[in-house]
Simulated assay, not measured.
Amino acid sequence: MNEQPTRIEGQAGGRAHFRYFDLIMAAFVAILLLSNIIGASKPSFVTLPGGQEWSFGAGVLFFPLSYIIGDVLTEVYGYAHARRVIWTGFAALIFMAFMAWVVVALPPAQGWPHQGAYEAVFGNSWRIVLASITAFWAGEFANSYVLARMKLWTRGKLLWTRTIGSTVVGQGLDSLIFYPLAFYGLAGWPPEQLAQVVASQWLIKTAWEALLTPATYVAVNWLKHREGVEVFDTDTDFSPFAKSR
């Protein structure tokens, strides 16, 4: 596939107008919030060929899509624009956690029988909330940084190497932070099982990225052509706290 768009820029720190950036940011935040609300609390399983049940967190089916969108954002619009999206998602997660805490804490109206179910679904402990937000922040910034750096090293070629390579780092850091921070030391979570869950979640998320590589190529090339831009972060400040121009 042709990876060369119509215009080359040195970096994307400016506030250039892009037609699809806001839509992609909205999709990123929506998937991030929905995967945490709907999928995070439910374990599911698949039956292996030998008849053994293998459990996994249901959210792992959709949460990796946020990383794929993060790859597309960094590849097409550059690290500085991806940084704005990551901070937007971070703020949305904090507000979601605060809203869930307030709504769960409100006394239910007399006769409403679902408070227990509501608490079971939305009443996450402070450890899980802190672990989720911290893991997202660290993993997404690592993912974006590695992709932007690898784009410079590969001179914009071999897109698959940087989408998969950045996911290996970002998703690995995400899983390594979330599960120990959320569950270490709790009953039912022996260290051996915790390590297995970390490894399996990392492998599943990375496998999703590899499997969807053809779709990533299509999205990246289409956006580069439509936006008329190719961003190389040659002069970008990679600090997560730097301000975009």
Rank of each mutant, 00 (worst) to 15 (best):
A80I: 02
V218C: 08
K42E: 11
W137F: 15
L65V: 08
S144T: 07
Y118I: 14
Y184A: 04
Y77W: 11
G50Q: 04
R226H: 13
S125A: 04
A131R: 01
L33M: 00
L106M: 13
G51E: 09
I24E: 06
S244P: 07
A120L: 14
A142H: 03
A92I: 08
Y217E: 06
G185M: 06
L106R: 06
Y20L: 11
F62M: 12
A58Q: 13
P214R: 00
W160Q: 10
V103T: 12
L158S: 14
L73A: 01
K151P: 03
P43C: 06
A195C: 07
W54T: 06
A120R: 13
F63M: 08
A242M: 00
F98L: 15
N221R: 13
L147H: 00
D235F: 10
A199H: 05
A109S: 11
I128Q: 02
F141G: 01
N143S: 03
V197E: 03
A138M: 06
L159Q: 02
D22F: 10
A182F: 03
W222T: 01
A58T: 15
E119Q: 07
R245F: 13
A97L: 07
L34S: 06
Y79N: 01
L173A: 12
A91T: 11
K157E: 14
S166W: 10
V85A: 09
F178Y: 04
H17A: 15
A148E: 01
Q4R: 12
L65C: 11
G57C: 08
S200W: 10
T234D: 09
G228E: 08
G123T: 10
V231C: 04
R155D: 14
R127C: 00
W153C: 09
L93N: 11
L223F: 05
P214M: 00
R127W: 04
G14D: 15
E230D: 15
G116L: 07
G59E: 11
T236R: 01
A100D: 15
Q196A: 13
V168Y: 03
I204T: 05
H225R: 15
F62E: 08
